[in-house]
Simulated scan of single mutants.
Amino acid sequence: MVQLAIRNVSRTLQDNNGQPLEILKDINFQASSGEFISIIGPSGCGKTTLLRLISGLDTPEKGDVTVDGNKVTAPNVSRGYVFQHGSLFPWETIEENISSGLKALNGRNYDKELVQHYIELMGLKGFESSYPHQVSGGMAQRAALARSIVMKPKLLLLDEPMGALDAFTRADVQEVIHQVWQQTKTTMVLVTHDIDEAIYLSTRIIIMTPRPGEIKEIVTNPLDFPRNRTSTEFMDLRKIIQDKLNFY
């Protein structure tokens, strides 16, 4: 079942001199329920802009974005968003951050057991009362992920959430995201610069051109789970995608 549809979407912004700057051009793709889509391409090609259009934080001049057949015109709790730096509330504890959306919707009657489930799933047990500045970057990103997924979104948008992490922490958060995806069957769209990350997590990989961003190709990932980053098949697919990113 098609859950997300992007049809003929273009977006133009203004540069520092007030001149029009075409960011995205004629974007078309669909995502079925439960897919994991990665969007990869050079800096400035409009990856984050596309994610903002899907979320409803921005609107296109041309074309439309629909989720479950409904046109996206504004943000909605059915579409979660995880930013590169997590954007946790510094004045709230890890548990308070994770439960903040639920409390905003349901007041004191929010599902405390669900919050505890994701605290444990994210490996944050024992850090519930810690503040964001008291935990590692990886823990903060896991908390940000939990804060979004606890709302049970139909679509989770991930804007380079591992981009600022070291290699070991990055791999750890990737495993958590993969586990959440498999458990919840939530449709996920990830923006990344990392080819290995895209291959490891995704069912399909969208390759973007330099600005103005267009879809150069959509690659279906044939690798079965669990995936081995050092396997011949993984490395072969990496080379195929690297070759398609011939503007690097």
Rank of each mutant, 00 (worst) to 15 (best):
L4I: 13
R7A: 14
N8P: 05
N8R: 13
S10W: 10
R11F: 11
R11V: 10
R11I: 04
T12G: 11
L13K: 08
Q14S: 12
D15C: 13
D15V: 13
D15P: 12
N17Q: 15
E22F: 06
I23M: 07
L24M: 06
K25T: 08
K25C: 04
D26P: 08
I27Y: 12
N28Q: 14
N28R: 15
F29V: 06
F29T: 07
A31D: 08
A31N: 03
S32P: 03
S33I: 01
S33Q: 12
E35L: 04
E35K: 08
S38A: 01
I39D: 09
I40Y: 11
P42M: 03
S43I: 05
G44I: 11
G44T: 10
C45T: 07
C45R: 07
G46N: 08
G46V: 07
K47T: 05
T48N: 02
T49M: 09
L50G: 04
L50N: 03
R52L: 00
R52Q: 02
L53A: 01
S55R: 02
G56T: 01
G56D: 03
D58Y: 10
T59A: 15
P60E: 10
E61F: 03
K62P: 05
G63H: 11
D64T: 10
V65H: 09
T66A: 11
V67T: 10
G69S: 13
K71V: 14
T73C: 09
T73D: 14
A74P: 00
A74Y: 03
V77L: 04
S78V: 03
S78K: 14
S78T: 12
G80Q: 00
V82F: 00
V82I: 05
H85P: 00
H85Q: 06
P90E: 00
I94F: 07
E96W: 02
N97H: 02
S99Q: 09
S99F: 04
S100A: 11
S100I: 01
G101P: 07
